[in-house]
């Protein structure tokens, strides 16, 4: 009887001791796991750094690899293009590099605003900035050190992101077809409606313009009017009455041509 039923207080104490032991053990276990994870993370980070160090040239040259590298860094909480004084920025100078690209993006966007109303395709920016930086020129004959560098759309997107602190309202919008545009200057504060994005896509397909007839039956007048009115008011779309058949064309000027490159900043 005595053996089977031990007195209350002692029993409770012993149970409590057991629980404390469990807690200790589990805490130690967790700690160990966490430390192991930290070690793994550190190892991974070190090898990423090692990788970056070894492949620095390629990362700077190859836009695709650069994009993957950035994703990897972001997942690890390392942001080579944001942090200024780190191993990363020292290695790549990414922070300053993207800031320079960003400046060129801003210059181009502002310089062309009177024409395009603040809407410019990223592909256009990519061309202009590439030219302004002196990249993309065929220098295959020369030494490998000055081999052509290329900018990707991803680079332009990152460059636009560096402009965020300026609060100038630089924004990237994407049309239904996946084309990306830079918008700025509060051209359309609410962003594009689905109809307007459809209009942009259509204009791009047709070489820069649309006509009322393109939606003759699909859109009633009121829908067309609302769509085009806002774009005209924003200065993104210009009217053209000079067509041979006397029917009005609505041009998205941002889709035409490549503006001249601004002087590269050093």
């Amino acid at each position: 009887m005595l053996n089977r039923w031990r007195p209350g207080v002692a029993g409770l104490q012993s149970r409590q001791r057991t629980q404390e032991r469990y807690a200790e053990v589990s805490e130690a276990y967790l700690k160990e796991q966490y430390a192991a994870l930290e070690r793994q993370f550190a190892t991974f980070r070190t090898s990423l750094e090692k990788f970056a160090g070894t492949h620095r040239e390629r990362i700077q040259r190859d836009p695709e690899l650069r994009a993957h590298f950035h994703v990897m860094c972001a997942n690890l909480g390392v942001e080579p293009y944001v942090s200024r004084r780190t191993f990363w920025s020292e290695l790549f100078g990414f922070g300053e590099w993207y800031a320079r690209l960003g400046l060129l993006v801003a210059q181009t966007a502002i310089a062309t605003r009177s024409i395009n109303g603040g809407l410019i395709p990223l592909s256009t920016l990519q061309r202009v900035v590439t030219r302004a930086m002196g990249y993309g020129v065929d220098r295959s004959q020369s030494a490998s050190a000055s081999a052509p560098l290329h900018l990707s759309e991803d680079d332009i997107t990152r460059a636009v992101r560096t402009l965020a602190p300026l609060k100038a309202g630089f924004r990237i919008v994407q049309s239904g077809d996946g084309d990306k545009f830079l918008m700025h200057g509060g051209a359309l504060d609410a962003g594009f409606s689905a109809d307007q994005l459809a209009l942009l896509d259509r204009a791009r397909e047709q070489g820069g313009y649309v006509r009322r007839e393109d939606w003759a039956n699909a859109w009633p007048d009121v829908r067309w009017e609302r769509c085009i009115r806002a774009l005209l008011d924003a200065g993104i779309v210009w009217v053209d009455d000079g067509h041979a058949d006397r029917k009005r064309c609505y041009w998205v000027l941002g889709l035409l041509g490549t503006p001249p490159a601004p002087a590269a900043v050093s």
Binding site: W238, D240, C249, P260
Partner: peptide, 21 residues
């Protein structure tokens, strides 16, 4: 380059765009 953009040859309806033009 805008010299080859057709709408520059039509006086714009929107006042602000016309100013730019």
């Amino acid at each position: 380059s805008w010299h080859a953009y057709p709408p520059l040859y039509t006086i714009q309806l929107c006042a602000r765009t016309r100013e730019r033009q």
